[in-house]
Amino acid sequence: MELKAVLEVKDLHFSYKKKKVLHGVDFSLYKGEVVSLLGPNGCGKSTLIRLMLKLLESDGDIKLGDKALQKCSHKEIAEHIAYIPQYHNVPFNYSVLEMVLMGRISKLGIFASPSEHDYQVAHQALQKAGIAALASSSFGELSGGQKQLVLLARAIAQEVNIFIMDEPVNGLDYGNQIRLLELIDSLAKEGYTFLKTTHYPDHALLVSSRVVVLNGGKIIADGKPEEVIHSQMIKEVYGIAADILMHEKHRRCLPVFG
């Protein structure tokens, strides 16, 4: 029996005003996968994930489960997908716990406020993200890496299976990049589904069950990391030379000066 896609995009075209960004993209996300979306700047990665979250309107064929995404309200989408943006500043200085509680909004009725249960879920999410100690710190004073973990904890508090991340390691220091990847890896082992965009082929090799390469608004490769990430692809997409090496059990992508 064929596996059912949780999120499916068929022959998707999209343009901003006159600039065409996506030229017929086909993509399916299956439960339990960790998909890395690779591609150079301006290839349409961010546009694609925004379309899949209905943050951009289009009349393209996108399905969430069996339902057309256009017919889903933001609330319905949030009941299935959590979006983890790049960390950013917030004009009002919320506590970390308040930030995580915001992930519960789609679970609350119109007139309900967060209950004791919601607070518990938020605390558990903080624990899972390894930042329980930060609960009462103020979000604005955290480091970039901690902020990114808070946004991840908020997604966990949303109690959904699909996580969509936009360049999660962007702006983090070297240690935090790797720690975040490890956390994604361990959450994936618990059964969460990930779709993340990334600029690093090496990270895609470390943490992915599948790699999709987007170039010039088209998917040019889609498959297992070891099949997709090779020197020719790097040369073609990024215009640089790189070697793929085996280190212990892992393949690594190492750029070399030409």
């Binding site: 925004r50 979250l53 209905k54 943050l55 309200s73 933001h74 609330k75 319905e76 989408i77 949030a78 009941e79 997908i81 959590a82 979006y83 943006p85 950013h88 917030v90 004009p91 009002f92 919320y94 308040e98 915001m102 992930g103 909004i105 789609s106 609350l108 119109i110 007139f111 406020s113 967060p114 949303q158």
Partner: peptide, 24 residues
């Protein structure tokens, strides 16, 4: 007052607020 729980999300920016499930 009843709507106040939604207001926190608006300070995250419209896109993120929508993704968290509210009709901004």
């Amino acid at each position: 007052i009843f709507m106040s729980k939604y207001f926190d999300l608006l300070s995250l920016g419209d896109e993120e607020a929508k993704a968290l499930g509210i009709n901004v």
